[in-house]
Design a protein around this nucleic acid. Structure first.
Ligand SMILES: [Mn+2]
Ligand SMILES: [Mn+2]
Ligand SMILES: [Mn+2]
Ligand SMILES: [Mn+2]
Lengths: 230, 230
DNA sequence: TATATAATTTAGAAGGAACTAAATTATATA
DNA sequence: TATATAATTTAGTTCCTTCTAAATTATATA
């Protein structure tokens, strides 16, 4: 009997697949084989064979539609949330307690998340006072795996003249995070969109704290989450 | 180019073998296949094939003598020390920072030691102020992999009438550690051997702090390291 | 030295997770 | 609807690590 209440062993690899499928399946859609393969850095063939394995387990961890993709079953979702909780708690712990920069924590957490015990998770959760958000502003599932809700849009979708606060930033690319730090953009930064050019998809944005203006391409504005103001 | 200056990947499994060989080879002796197999909880056949692999690498990590056992080469020794440093720093970190009990840390560290980055090691070393001893009194190799020296004997070898201080305790068996805690034996505890019975190998020991007398079998006295007093 | 016992090695197989190359199915476009 | 292209699956291997069972070598004892 494993900690998740089912009786099966979950390998590190399976944990990573579940997380990838969770992150690729925006509720209505199925996660495509290609998207999973890209995210995991493995071959399409590897993904196919893993999806078949995950679907064949009892209970099934994914619902797999041949040639169309897969989505998590309720059991798979719980396991994914459990790993995401570990990942995000670890990130915050590394950041707040061990003084890692926000561009360093993701990679480290990606390895640690598979080996820490439940006791370890519990202890860092206590040390951090049961937090809701990780260093990139992503919600941390609670002990009973409920996700804190937030209401955000991509900076990309903020219209000219609108104001907002930075609520989350993608953590997949450390160099993006370092770049934002240099620009003076962090969680909580307030800003106003001055203009958008549909030609090159550049936003010109004014940072309200400093008054500075910066020009940001879609490669950046799609990686930033905004809560609208006003 | 890996951090150890050689160009090869070391799997978690190999790391565990190196550690086991290190711990089983008291300098003059070779580590026997049997001892390694027992320590690792694998089959003799598995050990043999791994020893052959480790000896075949360039540079060789072990010096393997068919039918007699193996010992680490200088390269293997450095790798082993590096892992042992991680292990012991982790144990101390778990104990001092995350409030793990001394009987809980070994198992957790045994998993974490293989996945933390050099940056993580460095940061916990700083947080702990570059410590010399782990929670069980074992020496922590320094950054340049030098072992702090200590001069201890097994409590088993302390003679009737002699005094000593507890300097280390084996951490392999959590129940032993909990038992010692209950008896009031910890690192730093001073004691005097009152008597030894060669019939059952029991020591009768007086704890100097409390004056209490306890009877300890060889299964315990061999797992405790003593620095002689006087 | 012969023999029994213990320790070790070899041979063959298996499971998990990945890969490449070939085959198939779906989708987009003419 | 036919065809081209993209996405996915299948088949067959490989690598790593472990295992069991059989064979071999070392050591202890008579
Ligand atoms: Mn992350
Ligand atoms: Mn991961
Ligand atoms: Mn230990
Ligand atoms: Mn280990």
């Amino acid at each position: 009997m494993t900690p998740n209440g089912t009786s099966m062993e979950i390998s590190q690899t399976v944990e990573d697949y579940l997380k990838a499928i969770f992150e690729e399946s925006n509720p209505p859609t199925l996660a495509s084989t290609t998207a999973i393969a890209e995210r995991m850095g493995v071959t399409l063939a590897s993904v196919t064979s893993m999806l078949k394995k995950l679907a064949a387990k009892t209970p099934a961890l994914v619902d797999y539609r041949k040639h169309h993709g897969a989505k998590l079953t309720p059991e798979g979702t719980l396991l994914a949330l459990k790993i995401i909780r570990r990942h995000r708690l670890l990130e915050l712990f590394l950041h707040d307690v061990l003084a890692f920069e926000w561009d360093e924590v993701h990679e480290e957490a990606d390895r640690l998340e598979h080996v820490i015990s439940d006791a370890f998770v519990q202890r860092i959760a206590i040390a951090l006072d049961d937090p809701d958000w990780d260093p990139h502003g992503h919600p941390i599932p609670s002990v009973d795996l409920e996700m804190p809700q937030e209401n955000t849009i991509q900076l990309y979708d903020l219209k000219s003249g609108e104001n907002g606060v930075v609520r989350w930033v993608s953590d997949r690319d450390p160099s993006l995070l370092r770049h934002l730090t240099e620009l003076g953009i962090a969680l909580g930064t307030r800003l106003e969109v001055r203009s958008f050019s549909s030609l090159d998809e550049n936003h010109t944005v004014r940072l309200l704290e400093t008054g500075e203006e910066v020009v940001l391409g879609a490669g950046i504005t799609r990686q930033i989450g905004i809560q609208k103001l006003d």
